[in-house]
Design a protein around this nucleic acid. Sequence first.
DNA 1: CTCTTTTCCTGAACAATTCAAGAAAAGCAG
DNA 2: CTGCTTTTCTTGAATTGTTCAGGAAAAGAG
Lengths: 143, 143
Amino acid sequence: MPVATAFPDLLREAGLRVTTPRVAVLGAVHAHPHADTEVLIDAARVEVPAVSHQAVYDSLRVLSDAGLIRRIQLPGHVARYESRVGDNHHHLVCRSCGAIEDVDCSVGHAPCLTPSDHHGFVIDEAEVIYRGTCAACRAAQTV
Amino acid sequence: MPVATAFPDLLREAGLRVTTPRVAVLGAVHAHPHADTEVLIDAARVEVPAVSHQAVYDSLRVLSDAGLIRRIQLPGHVARYESRVGDNHHHLVCRSCGAIEDVDCSVGHAPCLTPSDHHGFVIDEAEVIYRGTCAACRAAQTV
DNA sequence: CTCTTTTCCTGAACAATTCAAGAAAAGCAG
DNA sequence: CTGCTTTTCTTGAATTGTTCAGGAAAAGAG
């Protein structure tokens, strides 16, 4: 994880203007992996108390479009964000509590990237979502 | 695809009450793969003109919970439904127009079901989403 | 046919996100 | 450093897909 002073450079390298809300949001995403927008708004306001929620929404979109962060949107849940990008990792999602864990691709070289029939599509990414039950929820159910 | 008269039996076998809206919704999902709720409401009203949208929403949930249909919810899109269930197939999604195509698992035996680190989760399913651009959208962009 | 339970209808509510218009700030040229 | 142009932020409201609530209707069992 980059130190706090590196966030402005990350923005500049991506060709984005360096603004206080963006630096705060980028820092918040790095500090809170898999956090939703509400958590990120609160985290950003620790550094910039007056930041509006739209500024956070806009920053999240800009940062996602620039590839500095990644948006994770799962059915039945609000959008979440993470700072790990470009390493082809996937996600493990708990059906019960919605917890997310990162997992590296099992085979290492994107085994599922070549489906049996591509239907004329040009495929550029394969996203894998593992669903199951986390240890905490299993323990809670057993009790 | 089952003939129309088989839908009530499907409902009964699943332990569900057979109602006019449910039969119409189940038929609509079979007739319109990957359709969204709006399309399914219209399709159901061809057979049952007075059906309310909540009845359709409720039927879709009940049928999904019973495993008779499957809900597909992709980021940035409304919920969609399909009638292929239990065959471990995945989806190919166009980034541009949102079109969905079915694809069978490339290796055949759920290659990604065993990630390198399960983080204490008990995994019961791996869902793969291939993202790319469909032939129609590529043609449109080239023009 | 009657009764109980589930489901449907009408209509309102909700929550996450987006839109809109003006004010402020970033970055650049001089 | 100063002024200018463009982008971004703020305030506040709107939108959209979906869900909630209460009473009416229908399904299924006996």
